[in-house]
């Protein structure tokens, strides 16, 4: 056995262990797109809640007003669905480009580990909405999304964990500073996603 053979043997073992335990076809581009959708959504939400009057910006309605509440909910739902569809589509495309099957044991584990905190968080938020605690929405969305990322990160790039921690910290800050929910949404779902997506894109796609 030649020395080079041993090295290539060891590197193939390492590569397989990594590829069989981590899903690496996540696309950085989908993070950027999700961020852009979130920013557009936040801008629409801002227009719904704040009105410009004689140069002064002020809140002319409150979020618990049903007339504002439903359009806001719709905007958030559209942003979420668009982000998911784009993310799934870009991930499948990326996996195909790498000659990988996107539906493999690792992607299943990744999905499962993320879905549990997301569903529990989603249910909790819906319960709070029905009970009229609107102030909790922004921070809980960020916190549970961050927890989902942290729990999913063991099955993909470890960078995802840092994004998760940032989202959780933002969520806690949002809980500390009521009334700035939209601001933290813009940072957490918009700016952070674009920032993180760009890093991922340049780090792994090149």
């Amino acid at each position: 056995m030649k020395e080079n053979d041993i090295y290539s043997e060891l590197s193939s073992i390492r590569n397989l262990m990594e590829r069989s335990t981590k899903f690496i076809s996540l696309s950085g581009l989908s993070g950027i797109m999700a961020g852009i959708y979130a920013l557009i959504g936040a801008w629409i939400a801002y227009k719904l809640v704040y009105t410009e009057d004689s140069g002064l910006l002020y809140r002319n309605v409150y979020v618990n007003d049903p007339l504002v509440w439903w359009p806001l909910f719709l905007v958030a739902a559209v942003v979420l669905i668009l982000s998911l569809v784009t993310g799934i589509w870009l991930t499948i495309r990326q996996a195909k480009k790498k000659g990988e099957n996107f539906w493999n044991p690792v992607s299943k584990r990744l999905l499962l580990s993320m879905i549990i905190p997301l569903i529990i968080g989603g249910l909790l938020i819906l319960i709070f909405i029905f009970r009229g605690y609107y102030g909790i929405i922004s921070s809980s969305c960020l916190i549970f999304y961050g927890l989902a990322l942290i729990s999913g990160s063991q099955f993909t790039f470890s960078d995802v964990k840092w994004l998760g921690f940032c989202e959780v910290i933002l969520g806690l800050l949002a809980a500390l500073l009521p009334g700035y929910g939209l601001f933290f949404w813009v940072i957490g779902f918009g700016v952070l996603h674009i920032f993180y997506g760009s890093i991922m894109h340049f780090k792994y796609n090149q």
Binding site: E9, S12, I13, L16, M17, S20, T21, P105
Partner: peptide, 13 residues
């Protein structure tokens, strides 16, 4: 080589 590769996947998962 394939046997070694199979084993590395099964050890990691």
């Amino acid at each position: 080589r394939i046997r070694l590769q199979v084993m590395s996947v099964l050890v990691a998962n």
